[in-house]
Every structure is written in structure tokens, then in C-alpha cells.
Design a protein around this nucleic acid. Structure first.
Lengths: 163, 163
DNA sequence: CCTGAAATCTATAGGTA
DNA sequence: TACCTATAGATTTCAGG
């Protein structure tokens, strides 16, 4: 598989797949799983990290354990599509920790975001403040997450590259 | 902070925050960061894991490194809202690795999903197959992700619980 | 890619407040 | 209960082949 000029073989892909699901696996156990001794496995992993292919590691926390929590998916359309207006909106997104995911989209919606709030009331209070801060939001729609159905790491090793 | 009967103090929350961003930090360095010696820090971490508060660890990979890749956000409405139909749809979601995130929503849309594909053509080919498999999808909308704006871990330690 | 070994980290035992 | 120090065993990292 080719990835922007860097070549990854089956072992590299296997290392990535394993760490996408077991990010804290020891390097020695990882080496065992890919049938290598620990040094070459370690060198491969270091390469994947240094090349930015593996960007970092995250603990996944149980949202239930922190309940009550309300997760909200929000779609946003801006009044204006000037680059300056996009930049202003995105800066505001960065500034608010309650908004923890946001992507720019093509196809009639400008952005989807995920917002974390204690409950619907505090979500609405947050959005009132957010909208009041003078971003040019034409309209937005609110969808409360009622149940997580599936959350897996992005299947890049199956889908991506030219392999 | 209270979390479903388990009490977490400031140090526990700090441990969680650190590992949400640096999931592979060594336990000894983690102990240093929270001003503890390694034993009590290790016990706290073990408790967080055993209690399911920390569910696991994931390597975060660069989607760019695997390019070309197309990420698509899809909203779905089903024909029928019978529990049986929901279950059938959700089982199909589980069965397709291309769909790597899916949440059930309230408010006019039944589901949002994220689909990973090589390009728009293979996305469309995938959706044609998916729709052809006889799930009762009334309609769906496709939004291509044009730019990731913000992706941080869910801010549970700031927002969640009663603290 | 391997072996081997020093530096570091992990997990546990035993003790103090 | 929550913390400490000490330490054996495991792991990580780096030579050298």
C-alpha cells in the first residue's frame, strides 16, 4: 500500500490495525502478534509515529460513567460563504470546548458539529450564547443522540491508499 | 464529581484528561504529572479501567497519510419506525466496516453515520449495495467531508457528572 | 532482521499517617 | 483510606552483527 510516498507493507498495516483498537498494547506483545522480535517492530512503530502516520494515542472514556450527559449533533448553515466568514466561525468553534468535533461539509450544509452538554437546557443555553456571539449563522438544526450504534476506528487499512 | 455512584476527585479527572490526549504515556510519567508516586497513581488508573470509566486506548491515525480517502457523513430516515426495522438497519450497519460510526438520533433524522470510501464513486457503489440489501430506508442525504475543523476528545471531565 | 544488555517502567509487598 | 519507599520482574531502547 502506498500512502503519500511512504510504503507500508502488511506488517505495518497489521501494527496500525492492532493499535487502533489496543492503543496501549506493550511493544513486546505487539511484536509477538506480528511475528517479529521486539527491535524491528519497535523500529517500524517509531517510523509510523515519526512519519505522522500514527498521530497519537487516546484513552476512550465511558460517557455513561459521567452521566448525565447529552450529546448533540448540530448542522450549521452560514449566511455568507466568504472565506472570512468561514474563518470566523471556525475560530469560534475552536474557542468553545463544548464543541468537540466539527467538520466542514459539501452539499447544502456547511458544518456538522458534536456538542457535549449536561442536558438539553444547558445545551440550549450554550447555543444561545454561541449564536449571540455574532457569527453569521443562517440556521442550525439540533439532533440529540439517543443511542450510540457503532463506533470503530476509521478503517483506513482496508479502504485507504492504492492497495 | 459523581459518576454513577463512583466518586472521582480532581486527581482522577486529571489522569483521565491526560490520557484522553496522551494515551500511551508511561505510568511513571503520569504519576509525576499528577504529583503522586507511581503506586497510588497505578491503583487509581487500575480502578478507572476496572470500573469501565476508561474503556480502552486507541491509536489515532492520519487520514491524510492514507489518502486518497473520502469521508462521508450520511443522514438516514427509515420507512418504518418499528423496533424490528431499527434492529435490522443497525445490524446491517454493524456488518459493514465502511460504516465506522453511527448514532441513533432524535429530531426528524433517524441516524447519522460516517462512511469511509476511496472516492465518491466507490462511496456511491457502496451505498447502492447497502440500499439494495432491502433495509427500509425512506431517504438519505450525503455530505462529503471537505475539511476537518476540530477533533478533540469528548470533554467529559469539564461537562459531565454533577461536579 | 537478529541477539544481548543497560536503562527504564510496571506491579507488588510492606510500612507510615 | 490514601499515600509512601523499595524491589523483582518485565519492557523499552540501543549497540553491534
Amino acid at each position: 500500500m502506498k500512502t503519500n510516498g511512504v510504503k507500508l507493507d502488511e506488517r505495518d498495516l497489521r501494527i496500525i490495525e492492532i493499535l487502533q483498537r489496543e492503543g496501549r498494547l506493550s511493544k513486546s506483545e505487539l511484536a509477538r502478534r506480528v511475528n517479529l522480535s521486539s527491535t524491528p517492530c519497535w523500529e517500524r512503530l517509531r517510523h509510523l509515529e515519526d512519519a505522522g502516520i500514527i498521530e497519537g494515542y487516546e484513552a476512550r472514556v465511558s460517557l455513561k460513567a459521567f452521566g448525565p450527559l447529552t450529546q448533540v449533533v448540530v448542522t450549521v448553515e452560514l449566511e455568507s460563504h466568504l472565506p472570512e466568514e468561514f474563518a470566523r466561525f471556525e475560530a469560534a468553534v475552536q474557542a468553545h470546548p463544548e464543541i468537540y468535533e466539527c467538520d466542514s461539509l459539501g452539499g447544502g450544509i456547511d458544518y456538522v458539529m458534536r456538542v457535549m452538554a449536561r442536558d438539553l437546557e444547558s445545551y440550549q443555553a450554550f447555543m444561545d450564547r454561541f449564536l449571540g456571539s455574532g457569527l453569521g449563522i443562517r440556521r442550525y438544526f439540533t439532533y440529540v443522540v439517543t443511542k450510540p450504534v457503532k463506533h470503530t476506528p476509521p478503517p483506513v487499512t482496508r479502504i485507504g491508499g492504492s492497495g
